[in-house]
Design a protein around this nucleic acid. Structure first.
Lengths: 139, 139
DNA sequence: TTGAATTTGGTACTTTAGTATGAGCTGCCT
DNA sequence: AGGCAGCTCATACTAAAGTACCAAATTCAA
């Protein structure tokens, strides 16, 4: 952390020095206007990119996960079926899902069976893979 | 894609116009040197940040996924078992996995059964969830 | 080369998953 | 009121998954 502060401080100081130098060169008119402006623009352009990359490298962790409600609608997946699907993703058995949702195992079987048709899958594992691909379940 | 090209082209043109304007203002010396330089520096700094963010927004898809080999070792998961686990994540049945790996369904059952013990799971779906949590399978 | 781990495969069995079908109930829309 | 969609549950069945136990071939390091 100390190193970060030092580096950033050094960068700022260097930029201010560059700024001052540009001004002095300009006032003394030893060089063409274009060059001073171009160098300044390029340097600050580069610094902008560098700062952006550096500041983005850290909070990049949290991936924005958004459930594709449109897809859910399109496939005709109901609220209850979605609940079953999410429980499914937790690796629960039909019986356990039933206990969690306060319904019988039969009901869960019906929901799962419907999900398999709607997700075009033959097995629950395939359904989970499909649901992840379709952005219905988080990856 | 066309829109992207148009936007970028417009930005470049605007920057060149800004550059020209700076030069003219400078030559006519209507303003202080500091201001011209400062505005130019700030604008290019901002553009640098913008370009960086935009160009990063696209190849951001590939999430740096690293398989936790240490965990695999710790759990005593063999090479073959790992192959079975990956096929499992593709939603394949034991029979299909066997066909893919050129072994019998019996063999796959054995591997899966061992995986369940090593991953501390009761079902294959639970095993997949555990494997993702343990960074053995990509999320 | 010997021993341990891995890989393979089988039989027999239990459990879970999935299908097919039917049916009762509720809420909502027309 | 009638109809439709969603949720519920049951029975009966088939298919797949999983367990237990055994055993042979292979690999690979000591």
């Amino acid at each position: 952390m100390k190193r970060i502060i030092l580096v950033f401080g050094a960068i700022v100081i260097l930029l201010m020095l560059l700024f001052e130098t540009s001004k002095r060169i300009w006032l003394s008119s030893d060089f063409q206007a274009e060059w001073i402006l171009a160098v300044l623009a390029l340097v600050f352009f580069g610094v902008g990119i560098w700062v952006s990359r550096y500041s983005k490298a850290k909070p990049k962790e949290a991936q924005p996960w958004t459930q594709d409600l449109v897809m859910i609608e399109k496939l005709g997946i109901s609220k209850r079926e979605l609940e079953v699907l999410e429980a499914l993703a937790d690796g629960l058995s039909n019986k356990e899902i039933g206990a969690q949702l306060f319904v019988s195992e039969s009901t869960v079987k019906t929901h799962v069976s419907n999900l398999l048709v709607k997700l075009d899958a033959k097995r629950r594992t395939e359904a989970l893979k499909r649901a992840q691909e379709l952005q219905i379940l988080p990856k």
